[in-house]
Nucleic acid binder design. Sequence first.
RNA 1: GCCGGGGUGGCGGAAUGGCAGACGCAGAGGACUUAAAAUCCUUGGGGCCCACAAGCCCGUGCGGGUUCGAGUCCCGCCCCCGGCACCA
Length: 807
Amino acid sequence: MAHSYDPHTIEAKWQARWAAENVFAAREDLGKRKSYLLVEFPYPSGAGLHVGHVRSYSAMDAIARKRRREGQEVLYPMGWDAFGLPTENYAIKTGRPPQEITQENIATFRRQLQSLGLSFDWNREINTTDPSYYRWTQWIFIQLFKRGLAYKAKGWINWCPSCKIGLANEEVVDGGCERCGAPVEKKEREQWMLRITAYAQRLYDDLDTVDYIERAKVGQRNWIGPSKGAIIPFALAGEEGEGKEVVEVFTTRADTLFGVTFLVLAPEHPAVERLLSSLSNRDEVDDYVKAALKKKDFERTAEGKEKTGILLKGIIALHPATKDPLPVFVADYVLPHYGTGAVMGVPAHDERDGEFAQRYHLPIKQVVRPHDGSVASLPFAQDGVLVNSGQFDGMTSEEARKAIMDAVGGREHTTYRLRDWVFSRQRYWGEPIPMVYCERCGWQPLPEESLPLELPELKEYQPTEEGDSPLARLEEWVRTTCPACGGPARRETDVMPNWAGSSWYYLRYTDPYNNEALASSEKLAYWMPVDWYNGGMEHTTLHLLYSRFWHKFLYDIGVVPTQEPYARRTSQGLILAADGSKMSKSKGNTVNPDEVVEQYGADTLRAYEMFMGPFDQPVAWSINGLVGIRRFLERVWSLLERVEERQPSQEALTLMHRTIKKVSEDIEAMKFNTAIAALMEYTNALMKEASIPKTALAALFSLLEPFAPHIAHEGWERLAGKGALLCKEPWPQWDPAVLQEGEVTVAVQINGKTRATVSVAAGSTEEDIHKAALAHPRVAQALAQQNIQRVVVVPGRVVNFVVRERQ
RNA sequence: GCCGGGGUGGCGGAAUGGCAGACGCAGAGGACUUAAAAUCCUUGGGGCCCACAAGCCCGUGCGGGUUCGAGUCCCGCCCCCGGCACCA
């Protein structure tokens, strides 16, 4: 064979040409339909590109390439989410500046991505650690602050003693640090918080307006976790009956109010501290509260853990309806940050309260019975009909909830599991928070025109022993003047979490060099929203929620034109190691894309990852599968040797159009595996021909371009003439008329079992098909001894004889 | 416990309620070769029958059901993966 398939030469050639002619640059062409296709920008770690990145990027690349050729204006950009802990930890270890490490890693990632021939518009490359980028991240923070959505608060935070870093609730996994796994402790600290809870309901409701993979929607709904109920006041009194204060509880079951036999406060509840002095067992209570606060979150919340609590002696609560005195407890199973941090104990109708009541021998009073009148085993947690509830007896739970709430001065309330976002990190490698503290003026934002507040260079990156950012050591940087009064002031030394830069990056791609705004309103109006966003499942809760929150805020202040950032979200499945386990650096079972490209070529790697299995399912890596794709490309290549100027046969033409249809539809449906299978079938059919009609082969290269763009371009050029550029060619169209022509095979069934097939002209009538089936010798023979009861004909598909044996 | 996704050959997987197993991998047989690799051709769910040709039975996690016809729809279960989980 004179010219064997040599991917390296071909791939280098076409990558150079695409770059030189800037063919993938996105333009704002108002006359064209736009398509903003987004993939998650990578964190440029020292480990280099992962085959999982390749799966996501190749998939969207296929869609981008196809849509461009269909005449759409496509924006398919790439950038770097480069702030973050691994780089900082590496800097601590080696003493090298994170800036330098990041630059190196980015260079590696860029080279790797470019070696794959992905059709990114590299003119729009962005980097979250670039001051010209994070200037706008800081700007957004200031806008949040100005509108009361960023605030400093003292509170118990999740603290990782190993990373010496405060963690957002979301970063705690099974009670451990998301990054290092160390058990998370509680620590009291002043932190910047973002009031995402102010957007909870909108973030929840607007999920109905977007097209996300169901798992992602469910994840967000669970995370926001709205719960509708009532807030009900309980008055507290001393044992002599003198009033103390009012504690509000949150309940979704106001209908069970008459079943309340005790009250429970979270150890953190502010009333506990206020009441302490009037308790006869104050020392005991104090000890319990202190012990509870010391406990790690997962120790406190582990299910199945026995519920403990302590009675507040010297205090009672008054039942709001009956005025009966009720004991008041402090118990750590009540969470401080949910509802009001206080619950009414209804042991007959709540699992947890029941358990608690049993342990402390508290009365259990049933006030709801099942609708069907049966005897319920307690606790009975479902709705039913009220009993033992005075004037409310006989009402359904549903009716009673409102009636009782109104009767005792309660009010409707929705509470959320979602908590405000801890936005401070006591670290270096993040966006500096652009705030200063003045004794006289309090927290003041930097003037917007002074942004960016650049990260100063350091000699040492280790956080301080107290857990402060290493920036705290730079006294000359920390000391500054107040933007409001000009007096002495101190800078915030915490930096932002690495969710910050990724919460708005898709906006910057639309206008990456803008110095006046994060992006111009014209560019945003043209490109937003992102039409299709693909990324990993691991980011569908937090990253999506955070960026939706920022986006809605930016919408509210008139910066962006849409309520939602992403119209559609899909997720690729994980790529597993050959043995089905997770790939990880520590297990040493990762696959390096560079080696695969070196050995098999980028086209093989890309097409293989699209072929290996359904896109949204996890699949194990397989060298054999990779080899299979390489063989397929070799076969496609070999067809060039037998090409001839001639008309394809009717059969070949039909298959060609069928393949065009299949590949076109499958790409949009992300059924890449079956699209490639169709291309294989088409190739196999051409292989059998003595000579290959030029148009038939040209169509093959054309359809192959989204998956294996280099070989497709080379093949196309060889057929079309020197200089031809496939990615500028229109996407092939199928002709429905061609698909109609020819013969179709119809299955002949007897009692639903296939006994034969017959070939009939496409578009044959039911009668013709019926006759053709009867004419088949085997069918005739099989029906000889039978009475035909009924015949079902589905044109183009099947004919079914329903028979009974002749007596 | 709740939610989401799955269960089909030796393996990855395919199949608008209409010929189950496309396509790929592994395997078997053959051609080419001194030989091997590569490549090409044939075969390829299990079983029965069989010189051959053909034919028959069983088969999509399990049990029912709907239908002329079910991997696909309905009811009841089992198992695997992922997420959430003392949220009042």
